[in-house]
Design a protein around this nucleic acid. Structure first.
Length: 665
DNA sequence: CGGTCTATAATTTTT
DNA sequence: TTATAGACCG
């Protein structure tokens, strides 16, 4: 453990306090990840078995990172036996063993948001009367919230009977399809532990040392899960920062970290306040803003670095000028330090704000990357193939069956499908079972009947194949795609040949992913589908080595750092957002601002507009009320008009320099 | 079924 | 302004 003396006293205490509950309040940039990984290493060094250690994160990215970093400090065989995963992956593991006690089969499918939405849409269209309307998206959100808060069906029924009916039906259909959604993973795991002491005991004995990252983001169920797992040994170490709790709207309970003592009595509380990221001007500013939140665990970040440059606050006339100013300022700074574009980030409250900045960056030919685009797995072609695979894994999964039944078109039209759905509802069987029944087939025309039988034969044949021992799933998938002439379908349905080619490549990519999966796992198709559902890697994150200015929301920026940061649109109504003010979440908005500020290492620039184009017209804007809370000692207010009146050519001249520089190599 | 038109709404999005 | 969802028609 040679590296222990690299740690500051608080970090050291956090690493070496292994027994009993521990709450590590890790401020932004205080070396949190390092502490967690060192702590795991230290536990192993103390002779704790790696099998007994569980580290839980929120994202797969965080889990992978942690695994990697521990891997550099611990011998491989030991490292491999550690459990480092997300809450949801942990739940899958627990449920795969014992979910039968709750009446599900162990090969349950996991529905992602798209699947949920599809199912809910289907249910709404089926059971709502003509005069009733219910937005599927809204229904999904309400159902999810209800599930997370342990609401009983009856309670939600008091408000909206259609919603309650949809909710009830939704749960029934999930169960019938042997499927669970993300919320169910947690709910069912907690229920399993609640009702089966033997199971609880098994896992309590297995994981004697728990570590939970980003504890401020845990919801009610996640806390309950931790309580069950940690009850026996009480070696529960949670790490987080209440000041960075920005997911309350999504069910995160900041109370979990604020009232940790209520769940695990007499914890050791350790505050990490020494920051290794930012200048003291930036930290001073951050401290001055977050101080205004009433409910928090008091702490103040400090650094051994110097004060650094003051933070610039710039008022600009309108949003176009804002983009103009920020991008030319950014270009200027880049030129001065001759660093890479990666060092810069533009952070905004709403994705819509990024557009003008994109345009401006493109105009000046500055590379950029936007974080938070569409997931690879949300693409139509990828969903199609996944639906086929899920349909083969379980033909009784109606949702996936409906997706593939006439894709590509094979003569089973809407009328036939409606009939099958109606029949299956009556007979209370799956759609696939309905299709197979001779009673149903008799209702069809000769032509349709043939099409239906061909479809059944196709599914049956491939279903048999994937269940053979030692099969190569990827080659079966490839054969299936070939047989249904999927590439032709893509070419037919795409506007341009390039698009078709691109989509085809996506499909191939998925097949390769499947092959990779089978090379490293024995879990088979349902394991693959679960992994895909739980790890919907966003595409832009795969090419991280590409240079470019980062355009990112305040939310997505949490956990990241950049030498030079621009926080844009700091206006009343944007940050804090009007909707949040309406809902009384001002504190969370302030934390969001705090998160943004603490991303910056060296320089920070904050802008706000006097006018902004919104919904067509130009409307006046006021500076965010947060700005007046900033400690003026660290602030430099820039007069934009003075800047603008300076030889307007400065920016232009700089870019000419840039060109010349480029020419010189 | 698929393309075009029109009405409507307008945060944030780890799994 | 703009994106998107549902309606509507060929």
């Amino acid at each position: 453990m040679a590296r222990l003396f690299d740690l500051n006293p608080q970090q050291l205490e956090a690493v070496t306090t292994t027994q009993g509950p521990v709450l590590i309040l890790a401020g932004a940039g205080t070396g949190k990840t390092r502490v967690i990984t060192m702590r795991i290493t230290y536990l192993l060094h103390e002779g704790i078995s790696p099998d007994a250690i569980l580290a839980v994160t929120f994202t797969n990215k965080a889990a992978n990172e942690m695994r990697e970093r521990v891997g550099t400090m611990v011998e491989r065989p030991k490292a491999k036996r550690l459990t480092i995963c997300t809450f949801h992956a942990l739940c899958v593991r627990i449920l795969r063993q014992d979910i039968e006690r709750l009446g599900y089969k162990t090969n349950f499918a996991i529905y992602d948001e798209g699947d949920q939405l599809g199912l809910i849409r289907k249910i709404i269209s089926r059971i709502s009367a003509k005069n009733e309307k219910l937005d599927a998206q809204l229904a999904r959100n309400l159902i999810s919230r209800a599930k997370n808060q342990h609401w009983k069906l009856a309670e939600s029924a008091t408000n909206n009977s259609l919603l309650a009916a949809v909710f009830e039906r939704y749960q029934e259909e999930l169960k019938a399809a042997n499927a669970v959604d993300f919320d169910d993973l947690l709910i069912l795991t907690v229920r399993l532990l609640e009702t089966n002491p033997a199971v609880t005991n098994k896992w309590q004995e297995r994981f004697q040392y728990l570590m939970i990252d980003e504890f401020q983001d845990t919801n009610r169920l996640q806390l309950e899960l931790v309580r069950y797992l940690g009850r026996q040994h009480r070696n529960v170490c949670v790490v987080g920062d209440d000041d960075q709790s920005i997911y309350g709207w999504r069910g995160a309970e900041i109370a979990n970290i604020l009232e940790f003592e209520a769940h695990f009595a007499d914890p050791k509380i350790i505050k990490l306040e020494q920051n290794y990221r930012s200048s003291n001007a930036i930290l001073g500013l951050a401290n001055s803003i977050i101080r205004h939140n009433p409910r928090r665990r008091p702490k103040a970040l400090w650094s051994e670095k110097g004060v650094g440059q003051n933070v610039k606050i710039v008022a600009v006339p309108n949003d176009r000028e804002e983009a103009n100013y920020v991008v030319s300022e950014l270009q200027k700074q880049q030129l001065e330090v001759a660093g890479s574009w990666k060092r810069f980030a533009i952070i905004f409250r709403m994705n819509a704000q990024s557009r003008l900045f994109e345009e401006q960056l493109r105009r000046l030919q500055i590379p950029y990357r936007i974080i938070g685009g569409r997931s690879f797995f949300e693409r139509r072609e990828v969903k199609d193939l996944l639906a086929y695979l899920a349909g083969l894994a379980n033909p009784n999964d109606d949702l996936n069956l409906l997706r593939i039944i006439n894709t590509p078109a094979r003569g089973i039209g809407a009328t036939t499908i409606d009939l099958a759905v109606a029949e299956s509802n009556q007979a209370k069987t799956s759609i696939f079972a309905t299709l197979q029944s001779s009673g149903f087939q008799e209702l069809l025309s000769a032509k349709t009947g043939t099409a239906v039988r061909a479809f059944i034969e196709l599914i049956d044949r491939y279903e048999t194949q994937i269940h053979q021992p030692l099969v190569e799933l990827a080659s079966i998938a490839a054969a299936l795609l070939e047989e249904i002439r999927y590439p032709e379908e893509l070419r037919r349905s795409c506007k341009t040949p390039e698009e078709a080619l691109n989509r085809e490549e996506n499909v191939r990519e998925l097949v390769r992913t499947l092959a990779d999966y089978q090379r490293r796992s024995t879990e088979g198709l349902s394991g693959f589908l679960a992994e895909v559902a739980l790890d919907q890697e966003r595409e832009e994150e795969t090419d991280t080595d590409k240079d470019g200015v980062t355009l990112i929301t305040f939310h997505a920026a949490k956990g990241l750092e950049f030498p030079h940061v621009f926080l844009i649109g700091l206006e009343e109504g944007i940050l804090p957002h009007d909707r949040s003010k309406l809902e009384g979440n001002l504190d969370e908005e302030r934390r969001l601002f705090y998160v943004g500020i603490t991303r910056a290492m060296q320089t920070l620039t904050i802008t706000h507009c006097a006018n902004r184009n919104k919904y067509g017209g130009s409307i006046p804007c006021h500076p965010s009320s947060f700005l007046k809370d900033l400690d003026p000692q660290y602030v430099e207010v820039i007069n934009y008009h003075q800047l603008a009146n300076q030889p307007a050519s400065e920016g232009t001249a700089r870019s000419h320099f840039a060109k010349i520089r480029e020419l010189l190599g």
